[in-house]
Write a protein that binds this DNA or RNA. Structure first.
Lengths: 143, 143
DNA sequence: TTATTTGCAAATCGTTTGCACGACT
DNA sequence: AGTCGTGCAAACGATTTGCAAATAA
């Protein structure tokens, strides 16, 4: 969540991967982002803003994929649209997405512990609380 | 969940909508399906099996949309692939989708009540427990 | 050098849309 | 008759892929 571009790049290097300009660039964008959920499209835009418009969308996807495999980012679906990516390392959290306004609220995974424990003991199901968001209506948009 | 095609068609009529061959056909497929989650593609296949191959995909999407607006079906996302539809009317349930084998387990929404209540009191967030599934690993696929 | 990455273009998948024709009511 | 629904074809957004050229190691 507060990793520097350098730390990300180092992690890639440690994983035996090659350090290329596009990878540096994507790491830079992720590290510098103030929000913690970015779509590939948003990443592309920021690359363009930085004069790195030559990086291809497919390269961004591939880079995010790589970062994900190395465990540096998580891939999350907040709703119907594009997936988003966020840096790992903070407290694991679940996402509450308001289906009306689209606002995303992060809640610490601990709040869901009891339910997760229940699902596990009752159904043997271990939820990956991160990958899909919970959809519903936020306080401002309950009917 | 055990509605007959006729009941579905009647509900459409009651809603002031027109009864057409494609609509009858889709209702028939939904009513006759043994499983309770169908993708539009699966519906199309079954239409074809019934000699109704002339029904266009877009018509199926539009019909499902209509059924959804009338409240006869629910639209659910079980994972990355196509959305699925299922007849409303049974006990509301949440879906647990195994990200390894894809198996879907339905659990009564009541099992989640405490958590839903918690989210509501704590965040004012009213989850729509139906629209997105919980992803994770089923008993057979916990690492 | 040589295996890994890239850019590009094209393909894919699921879904939506514009439009003129056809058919419920 | 008049509106609503349909088929068709094309557009769509997000993502993936094949491949030859470029490049980090």
């Amino acid at each position: 969540v507060d990793a520097t571009a350098g730390e990300l790049v180092d992690a890639l290097r440690r994983a035996g991967l090659r350090i290329t300009a596009p990878r540096r660039a994507v790491c830079g964008v992720l590290a510098d982002a103030t929000e913690d959920h970015l779509t590939p499209k948003e990443i592309l835009e920021r690359l363009r803003e930085r004069g790195l418009g030559s990086v291809d969308p497919s390269t961004v996807y591939r880079t995010l994929d790589t970062l994900s495999q190395v465990g540096l980012v998580h891939h999350v679906h907040l709703g119907h649209g594009a997936g988003v990516v966020h840096l790992s390392g903070g407290v694991e959290h679940q996402h509450l997405v308001c289906e009306v306004c689209g606002r995303v609220e992060d809640i610490p995974i601990d709040e869901l512990r009891p339910m997760l424990a229940h699902l596990e003991s009752r159904y043997g199901f271990v939820a990956d609380g991160l990958h899909f968001a919970l959809s519903g209506r936020c306080a401002r948009h309950v009917e």
